[in-house]
């Protein structure tokens, strides 16, 4: 598990609208190069913000990514 990899990916999803659009279209392809564990990758592909938070994703990021935010 990598707190850095999870959170840098969350940050990019929040701040990089073009990357976010690619992720929405095909999450698995968009994060193919990310250095994630299998559990982390599965959570991102499922867009499961609760699980991403459990895996170390910072709350304020998972709550504020446009169109993907968990509440």
């Amino acid at each position: 598990m990598s707190r850095y990899a999870v959170n840098s990916l969350l940050y990019r999803l929040k701040k990089d609208a073009a990357f976010r659009a690619r992720f929405v279209t095909d999450p698995a392809a968009a994060i193919a190069d990310a250095d994630l564990s299998d559990a982390e990758r599965a959570a991102f592909v499922a867009r499961d913000m609760r699980r991403i938070n459990e895996l170390g994703g910072y709350l304020h990021l998972v709550m504020s990514i446009p169109g993907l935010a968990g509440h």
Partner: peptide, 9 residues
Amino acid sequence: SQDHAEAFD
């Protein structure tokens, strides 16, 4: 600045 801001943003 945040495009398509949500929640507290």
